[in-house]
């Protein structure tokens, strides 16, 4: 409760002074509502509630000193595939699977393979090769006398996902179901999954959204002065932040983007103070404050050819690729908003 009283007192002291503008509209409403009784008892004038950062009542002769409010958009493409496993995780998971193979009840073969069918015969043959029912744990006989030998030796490939994928695909190969034809030509039943490294990765095409599928990619744009930043623009009058974010996305990258602005609250902010404040229309602009809204892109691609905001260029970057492009101060403000993965 002490903190609340202190802030009410602070507000009361500041009421009427230009620096009261530093509290945002919603917060001021909430604070005045909460402490209305106390403030009334102290017979302190209420802070005017009709002020906003962009339209000011010009009661005072002195210019209003204030920051320009801007909205930025952290537009990201979420990771599309699972991450690469750490070598320890790979080894651990394979070891646990082999332990499971030792401890589990035997596989109910005749539920899954009808007896004396080509499928059954094929399965038997393949199981003879790999010694076990599990298809991707390598050659390992869990119930045998040497079942204790369940750990991998140095250089073994069984824990590698590529090796396991090959094993599964090999197992999915079926003989032709024509029973008369022994040793018929085999064909793959299952299509090989698309590679985890794409063409865009090989070309390092930073404009492509198919790059770095395991990572979150963020849209960075280059403005007319050649500076890279997240897309951002001033808030338009009484516009809400999330509406402004939707507008800025369209004005930056065009309509060919299926995006979603997440929530109505910003996830971070960046303040820049001008060395020499500029005064226009009785408002002294001290600097800029940018509030960042989070957004996701699901489909489409940015197109900055006829950008309203005058964007020159764009690219989709992972977190660590953003740092070299932006100033240290800007990086300090935004790096906590960007996900590590």
């Amino acid at each position: 409760m002490n903190a609340g009283q202190a802030s009410a007192r602070r507000l009361a002291i500041k009421a009427g002074s230009p620096s009261a503008d530093s509290v945002c509209f919603t917060c001021r409403l909430s604070i005045t509502r909460r402490h209305y009784a106390q403030a009334a008892a102290a017979a302190v004038a209420e802070a005017p509630t009709s002020m906003s950062s962009t339209s000011l009542s010009s009661e005072n002769a002195a210019p209003k000193r204030m920051f320009e409010v801007r909205t930025g958009v952290v537009l990201s493409r979420a990771p599309m595939i699972t991450r690469d496993l750490h070598p320890f995780e790979k080894a651990f998971y394979l070891y646990q699977r082999r332990l499971n193979e030792r401890l589990a009840m035997p596989f109910t073969k005749y539920l899954w393979y009808k007896k004396n069918t080509p499928l059954d015969r094929d399965e038997k043959k393949k199981r003879k090769e790999r010694l076990t029912f599990a298809k991707d744990i390598g050659k390992y006989h869990a119930y045998g006398a040497e079942g204790w030998h369940d750990e991998l030796l140095v250089g073994a490939k069984e824990s590698e996902p590529e090796h396991q994928l090959d094993a599964l695909l090999h197992d999915a190969e079926l003989p032709d179901l024509d029973e008369n034809q022994e040793g018929a030509v085999k064909h793959e039943q299952v299509q090989r999954p698309a590679p985890r490294v794409t063409e865009a990765d090989k070309r390092n095409d930073q404009k492509s959204l198919n790059r770095l599928l395991q990572r979150t990619l963020y849209l960075l744009v280059k403005d007319q002065r050649g500076r890279w930043s997240l897309p951002e623009a001033p808030v338009d009058g009484f516009e809400r932040l999330h509406r402004a974010a939707e507008r800025i996305i369209v004005e930056t990258g065009g309509l060919n983007m299926n995006t979603w602005v997440i929530g109505n609250v910003p996830v971070g902010h960046y303040a820049e103070t001008l060395a020499n404040p500029v005064t226009t229309n009785g408002i002294e602009k001290l600097g800029e404050k940018t509030f960042y809204m989070k957004a996701r892109i699901f489909a489409g691609q940015a197109n900055v050819e006829d950008s309203v905001l005058g964007v020159q260029d764009f690219c989709w970057l992972a977190k660590e690729e953003v740092q070299p492009l932006v100033s240290p101060k800007y990086w300090k403000a935004i790096h906590d908003m960007l996900a590590d993965r």
């Binding site: 903190a3 609340g4 202190a6 802030s7 009410a8 602070r10 509290v23 945002c24 919603t26 917060c27 001021r28 909430s30 604070i31 909460r34 979420a78 990771p79 699972t82 991450r83 979150t216 997440i262 929530g263 609250v265 996830v267 989070k294 996701r296 996900a339 993965r341």
Partner: peptide, 23 residues
Amino acid sequence: QTHEATIAADYMTLVYQHYPPGT
């Protein structure tokens, strides 16, 4: 993994409740 990488952070943003300083 999707939960950890994407959903948890988005969920937190979606349901964030702001309390002004001092409240």
